[in-house]
Amino acid sequence: MASAPSKQYSDDVSLLMVLLDTNPFFWGGTNTTTGVLSFSSFLTHVISFLNSIILLNQLNQVVVIATGFNSCDYIYESSTSEAIIVNSDNGQMPALCSKMLQKLEEFVIRDEQLSKENSPTGIVSSLLSGSLSLALCYIQKVFRSGPLHPHPRILCLQGSPDGPEQYVAVMNAIFSAQRSMVPIDSCVIGAQHSAFLQQASYITGGVYLKPQQLDGLFQYLTIQSRRLVPDMGMICTPTDPHKPNCATYP
């Protein structure tokens, strides 16, 4: 972080907070009717997408937060010094992937150990409220860093269904994001629409997206992110982006 203040940020530098759903009950469950997307191919799409964001502008920042079943944690920060050092010594995997996958694995194991104490009783939602709160705290730190800071956005990649017990907390986070003018984009990869994320994207002015063909996730993300990242304006969208299906929550 020490080198950050010396950088000159222009208008088109973005900070993308990616909230990654790692709920084992969603990814391992047989209830996923779509079934075509495995966790590993999902990660392939996401990592390619993150690389493309960093590629567009070297000042762009990416932070990945894992939304687990029992806990949430930071997985990857592109601005920390350890992430910048490119050590492709094994010659197979770029630094971004190896570092991130290693942390992700540690996180999933820790998350699993926590769940041994109490077995799930029907609820298979992941802790969206926790990861949203973490992302907002991080964004506040970026705001505090000075008048020139990258433009933050939150991208939720959510598969698990909403947890009704999180309603108040999720709404609090959404209103706080609205107040600090941070758009929440959401991409739902589960079977049903997510009412929480529809609300989140509608209230904060983000994009709500539910891809039809999950094996084209990378294309969906890049094309929709034309709005997320200003540089992406060079890519033409084939159709109008999805409008959030904004039904008032009963």
Partner: peptide
């Protein structure tokens, strides 16, 4: 700084929200 932000604007404790077993209390 987070302390102030959490109480003034966010109204969620990220720690409590990030732990499943503390949910019923919260």
């Amino acid at each position: 700084d987070c302390d102030i932000y959490i109480h003034e604007s966010l109204h969620n404790c990220p720690g409590c929200e990030s732990l499943r077993h503390s949910k019923p209390m919260n």
